[in-house]
Design a binder for these strands. Structure first.
Lengths: 257, 257
DNA sequence: CGCGCCTTTGAAGGAGCTCAATTTAGGTGG
DNA sequence: CCACCTAAATTGAGCTCCTTCAAAGGCGCG
């Protein structure tokens, strides 16, 4: 099945096709503006300008692809609601690595800027909603609003920094440490969104967690059980309660001496 | 020892301190302009504008740090000559992961944009030379030259894409595949610089290669020996000759039946 | 209620690690 | 110019952690 095309005004074709909800969005009233790219760090008046980026809101049902490798790049996507995974695949397509999970306020699609084609696949892990931000328009607007330009640069840089962290995790941590780090990271991101940092529902399967952590599903499952026995967490399938955050942090030191 | 500070005109302090060679550089005469950020893809007249970015050339002797974690971010660095590694460290500092090796024409320092402090360490693997590009000035100039803005965005995006590839390597490839991929990547990058793709001198130690590939030094050493016995390469310490590139490419399929 | 998918758990195997000894290359000073 | 010294690289043997293969358990949904 084809990945869904979310039209932005300057994209070829109808601006509002098929089953995709198209909503004129006002950033200034968006409850994610603290987290979202074009709004974060902008003053009230700048925000009015930002409203003109024309964000086309679109729903992405659970399991649907937002964009896939090879798709032409036209927009960035701010996650408004829901949860996504991004994956890269080995040519043969048999093995794939999850490069990240994205939650509300985070921005997807920056991989496509370089070649103007996407280089990974992004799939909704639950019924989700994104704001499609026309990249051409974003650039035009950023030209007028230096602060927006800066925010955008910081956003791309953060993604580089984040990926550096994942490389450290994949290259130099053992299985225990990887899962502990993963849980702490999720926890911290939920907290930043005003959700409980100690009790949350993971949206991803064990398989997807393992594809992110560079492990096998069975290993991840065993580790959840182990952490539970050690009294660090309660894990009932996707539901997680963190009982001992400090303990998890300590796990990350168990790797070497 | 402190990391070396390379002053750009708008940085606080003397613009040309100590043992650092300061040379007014003209991009239009630089033999790297095909590869380098501010020049790549720019027309002749745009290039003249680019000359005004004020690139301070600086030498970085073998083993010296260009910037380190926590250093204030002021500039990007285009590698003019030499070879660098970038590393991130676990808090304890005992384990570190090499996030990339950089060669002439490549740009370093984009990790610093997000927080205005660098989040990795970058060290010269041989006597090297960089152009320090004041980020403030780059932004001003990019504002005047849209093409430069676009090139810069593509550059950051490429870095994201590159790191996605490394995550795939670290998360889903076995040791053989990792080394094969590494050698083919080096080869291809040397080729792009007009150097022989089949015969080159690696600038990094086995230790550094292993810190990049998420393996141990001994494993990497064994693999070099193995590849040599299989007739894929000649490896005499850092000198590498690729005898059978197609064979190396085939190695990357051996990972999963 | 039964089917499919996700998850858990066990037992055995193997890829890469650890520890340790040896070889080689490059730099330095007599 | 050679002997020495140190750092890098190689190689071996045994071990460990994670994987592989297999089976059973549990939850959601038609």
């Amino acid at each position: 099945m084809p990945s869904r095309r979310i039209a932005t005004d300057d994209a070829a074709g109808a601006p509002n096709a098929g089953n995709i909800a198209h909503i004129e969005t006002r950033c200034s009233t968006c409850n994610l503006r603290e987290l979202c790219l074009p709004c974060c760090g902008l003053s009230r008046s700048e925000m009015d300008v930002a409203n003109r980026v024309v964000l086309n809101r679109a729903r992405v049902p659970h399991g649907e692809t937002l964009y896939r490798t090879g798709d032409r790049f036209t927009s960035l996507y701010a996650v408004r609601d829901g949860f996504f995974k991004s994956t890269v695949q080995l040519e043969d397509g048999r093995r794939d690595q999850v490069t990240g999970f994205s939650m509300p306020g985070e921005v997807l699609g920056m991989d496509g800027i370089a070649t103007e084609c996407h280089t990974c696949n992004t799939i909704a892990l639950e019924d989700s909603e994104v704001c499609a931000i026309s990249f051409v328009r974003l650039q035009l607007l950023a030209h007028e609003v230096p602060n927006l330009q800066r925010q955008f640069h910081k956003l791309m840089s953060s993604e580089i920094v984040r990926e550096n962290g994942v490389m450290l995790l994949l290259g130099r941590m053992n299985a225990e440490e990887r899962l502990a780090m993963f849980l702490l990271n999720l926890s911290q991101r939920f907290a930043a969104r005003g959700c409980s940092p100690t009790e949350f529902d993971m949206r991803m399967t064990r398989e997807e967690v393992s594809a992110y952590l560079g492990l096998k599903m069975e290993t991840v499952s065993r580790l959840f059980s182990q952490f539970q026995q050690e009294g660090l967490i309660v894990a009932q399938r996707r539901f997680i309660r963190i009982l001992d955050g400090a303990g998890l942090r300590r796990v990350m030191g168990r790797g070497l001496g």
